[in-house]
Design a protein around this nucleic acid. Structure first.
Length: 527
RNA sequence: GCCUCUGUGGCCAAGUUGGUUAAGGCAGCGGACUUUUAAUCCGACGAUCGUGGGUUCGACCCCCACCGGAGGCACCA
């Protein structure tokens, strides 16, 4: 830019002339400079936002193939690469850049001698953050850095806003979540976490596919609430003049598919629960649910071990993870213990759903836990487990045989009527997965639904409805089946060893941002 | 919803017994430099200290309210 005063002069036509907006004009000064540059480019016939660029390869494969060549080597091999310019080091008649795409980074060696003074000068006007395409020979510099000796280049997209500090990155967590695109650009850890996530999900799909499971999609908008106990989001469907629930679980539609003969199905999908946000909860989160006919919960124990350990290996190359200073191995087999035994072991008390209610209440009182009148012995037992046991279990553990009372969709235990055939997987003190032998007796299922509906009518917003169509489906006959649910976000938290669920969700739920106004986006002279 | 902490230029970040022009770094701008690796060196610029009130001779600093964020509690996976 020949006139360095231009961007600073308030008489430039970059912003509204109102005095009140002086501060916003200052704030936009880097933007204003870049908008001016866009104008210059257009004036000289250069499109700052062209349509496509033909690449010969991603950057990663180039590194893989040539990364070991000796310092000073010129290969004679010409490549065409594209990416974001992450760094630029000008050095007189020589400029070094760092070009990055999703697969890697490579240095650009840009010299006035090769490009000519004018085209070289244009390159130096690129900003960190711009997208560029380059063509040039693969070489290694005197210091041995693999580089592309740029013989031609083109701007692919001009960035109007500057990237955060090239060394410190973006530290403000609010900005990291709101502007994940910036976080992903400058914070390698953010990229690492999401690579972990997608590798894990990919591995889960692969294992299930190899086992003959079919991936399906079921409705998110539901007329009834069911499949779990949770407060739902309610929305309104205008065309039918109906309030609908966003799903809180995937369970009931998938089991209808078992009735229909799709005997191995799974869905990986978003579910919504109208509850608080904290380090382990986001109102929308991702569940895997899978159902396998002719299997029971024992088969699900084997399946969940394989799914989780495969995901770990795919994401990290190992089943070992370091969680808050403790090494945890996800390799099967995991410990298997009944809920009643584990309570005895951890808390030192004997409590089970076959006890008299008065006795279980006395146990809770003795432990300093509160109980409600509506709770039976099973719920009391579960309470001890939830409050005093779960958070103490670090190693992957299958906790099986839950009280019947707290599991309305699970099949009664084949040898103990006070229990159901259900298990949860605990890792690092948190529930990671949940599975049953699925209840397929329509008469019993209806009775359990009716209990729930009574609770809902009595004011419990987390209880579900009587889903008569689901009962009707069961009356056509659902094969015996094992079902498994895994909280994908929780799994990724473990695999990536992060403490907040927001770190594993690309765009976590946040309150609305204030202070972002049209004035922050004045178009300047370019439109 | 409640409690605690927190909010300083595009980014990172100093700044309490409240005291005149609010450190420094990165980025950006001007200049030098053909082998750099967060390049380096020189120079000039950039902030109504989240918002609105209040206390005070004087507020980034103390008080109140509001907005955003973090952690914890409650609820849940």
């Amino acid at each position: 830019m020949s006139d360095e005063n231009a961007a600073e002069s308030s008489s430039e036509p970059l912003d509204s002339p109102e005095d009140l907006e002086a501060s916003s004009e200052e704030r936009a000064s880097i933007r204003a400079q870049r908008l001016e540059r866009v104008g210059q480019l257009r004036a000289s016939g250069v499109d700052p936002y062209p349509y496509r660029f033909e690449r010969s390869s991603d950057i990663g494969p180039v590194r893989d193939e040539w990364g070991t060549i000796e310092a000073g080597t010129e290969t004679g091999v010409v490549v065409r690469l594209a990416g974001r310019l992450m760094l630029k080091r000008e050095q007189g008649r020589l400029t070094f850049g760092q070009l990055r795409d999703r697969t890697g980074e490579i240095q650009l060696f840009v010299s006035a001698g090769v490009l000519g003074k004018e085209f070289f000068g244009e390159f130096n006007q690129l900003d960190r953050g711009d997208w560029v395409g380059v063509e040039g020979e693969i070489m290694a510099t005197k210091k041995g850095e693999l580089s592309v000796k740029v013989s031609d280049w083109v701007l692919l997209s001009k960035a109007l806003r500057p990237l955060p500090d090239k060394w410190k990155g973006l530290a403000d967590v609010d900005a990291r979540y709101r502007q994940r695109y910036v976080d992903l650009t400058v914070n390698p850890d953010a990229r690492r976490v999401f690579e972990t996530r997608f590798a894990a999900v990919d591995a889960i799909r692969r294992v299930l596919r190899e086992r003959g499971y079919l991936e399906v999609e079921t409705p998110i908008l539901n007329l009834q609430q069911g499949g779990a106990t949770a407060r739902p989001f309610i929305t309104h469907y205008n065309a039918l003049t109906l309030d609908t629930y966003l799903r809180i679980a995937l369970e009931l539609p998938l089991k209808r598919l078992l009735v229909g003969g799709l005997d191995r199905v799974f869905e990986i999908g978003r579910v919504f629960r109208n509850e608080g946000i904290d380090t382990r909860h986001n109102p929308e989160f991702t569940m895997l649910e899978s159902y396998e006919a002719f299997a029971d919960y024992s088969d699900m124990m084997e399946l969940v071990e394989v799914l989780v350990s495969s995901a770990a290996v795919a994401a990290n190359g190992t089943t070992k993870v370091e969680l808050r200073g403790t090494s945890v191995d996800l390799a099967p087999p995991w410990r298997r213990v009944t809920m009643v035994e584990l309570i005895k072991e951890v808390v030192g008390v004997d409590i089970n759903p076959e006890m008299e209610l008065s006795e279980t209440r006395a146990i809770l009182d003795g432990l300093g836990l509160e109980w409600k009148d509506s709770w039976g012995p099973g719920r009391c037992t579960h309470e001890v487990y939830d409050e005093l046991v779960e958070s103490k279990v670090m190693e992957p553990t299958i906790v099986f045989d839950h009280p019947r009372e707290t599991s309305p969709l699970a099949k009664p235990h084949r040898s103990d009527p006070s229990l159901v055939e259900r298990f949860e997987v605990i890792v690092d003190g948190r529930e990671l997965a949940n599975a049953y032998s699925e209840l397929n007796d329509p008469v019993e299922q209806l009775a359990r639904f009716q209990e729930e509906a009574a609770n809902k009518a009595a004011g419990d917003p987390e209880s579900g409805d009587v889903d008569l169509d689901y009962i009707r489906a069961l009356e056509y006959g659902m094969p015996p089946a094992g079902g498994l649910g895994i909280g994908i976000d929780r799994l990724v938290m473990i695999l990536a060893a992060v403490e907040s669920i927001r770190e594993v969700i690309l765009f976590p739920t946040l309150r609305p941002e204030h202070g972002l106004t049209d004035e922050d986006f004045s178009a300047g002279p370019t439109v």
